[in-house]
Write a protein that binds this DNA or RNA. Structure first.
Length: 288
DNA sequence: CTGGGGAAGGGGCCC
DNA sequence: AGGGCCCCTTCCCCA
């Protein structure tokens, strides 16, 4: 089979980062993993200060009951979010279930909550080095040295709010995947994306030299360079030439002292994600 | 086992 | 809507 036809619906070894999202689908459908998480919060009533004879009983001494939820995709907010319009505070939504006696924001500030609230969550935890306070499996987020990292795709963000916005994209992408390929079980979020995928089955761009067929003209262009030997992309460090710009980019990493991809277990760095993945699968972090 | 090159696929953006 | 381009990713192969 020509490699150009390798349309992998599922890979048991090199799953996409959001595979963990998919594992939630069977439970309650596509919405289950993305639903806002609603948790009641009991806020202390300042007016009812405890006395020695009357020890504090937090479950009684509350004047405000707030709810905290993870951000919902807009279409889900319209369908299923309870209560009045949420008041957005940073990466979470807050609203009072009954009239607060003190401003809600002030009360929440008194709670001294961490940047990302400590909540139970359906999102998968992030495995990290034992005892590493930077590793945080809550809310599908990791506390990275420079900020916050998406557990599903690894994108770094400086603020929790930025990470929350990004995570909404994951939810929306999943919810919008409704165009299915009739030749395989792939799904796409738009008709255009599906049409583009269908080209990988039709392969309308055949090579005039070897007959190999490609899904897109520019793929054929790149392939033709394997026949002509043309290598228009030259490394500025060693003058080595490449037919593909991405391959030049990967090559440039070999000249760099600081490799981009680091193993979380042994801190060893690699020039490519594939090398890091292979390292983790083989020796350093074998699957249990 | 590891590092790296070659080839190809997919998504997003712009025109 | 479709094509071109860019970027990222993945897989295979070899030293």
């Amino acid at each position: 089979m020509p490699r150009s036809f390798l349309v992998r619906a599922h890979s048991s070894h090199r799953a996409p980062n959001y595979r963990q999202l998919e594992t939630q689908r069977e439970v309650n459908g596509a919405r289950s993993a993305c639903r806002g998480l609603v948790v009641p919060v009991l806020l202390p009533d300042k007016s009812a200060s405890p006395t020695p004879a009357d020890p504090p009983r937090p479950w009684e001494r509350t004047s405000v009951i707030a709810h905290i939820s993870l951000p919902l995709p807009r279409h889900e907010e319209a369908q299923g979010a309870p209560g009045p319009d949420p008041l957005q505070v940073g990466p979470v939504h807050l609203w009072a279930s009954r009239a607060p006696s003190v401003p809600l924001k002030d009360s929440l500030n008194q709670l001294n909550l961490p940047p990302l609230l400590v909540l139970p969550t359906r999102w998968p935890p992030i495995p990290g080095p034992a005892g590493d306070p930077a590793a945080d499996g809550r809310l599908g987020a990791a506390r990275a040295p420079g900020g916050f990292q998406c557990v599903h795709c690894g994108k770094p963000y400086h603020t929790p709010a930025g990470l929350a916005r990004h995570r909404e994209l994951h939810c929306q992408l999943r919810a919008r995947r409704c165009f299915s390929c009739k030749h395989c079980d792939k799904e796409y979020g738009s008709l255009g994306a599906l049409k583009m995928h269908l080209r990988t089955h039709a392969l309308p761009c055949p090579c005039a030299v070897c007959g190999k067929a490609f899904s897109r003209p520019w793929l054929l262009q790149g392939h033709m360079r394997t026949h002509t030997g043309e290598k228009p992309y030259t490394c500025s460090h060693c003058s080595r030439a490449f037919a593909d710009r991405s391959n030049l980019r990967a090559h440039l990493q070999t000249h760099s002292d600081t490799k981009k991809y680091q193993c979380k277990n042994c801190a060893k760095t690699f020039s490519r994600t594939s090398l890091l993945a292979r390292h983790q699968e083989s020796s350093c972090c074998p699957d249990p």
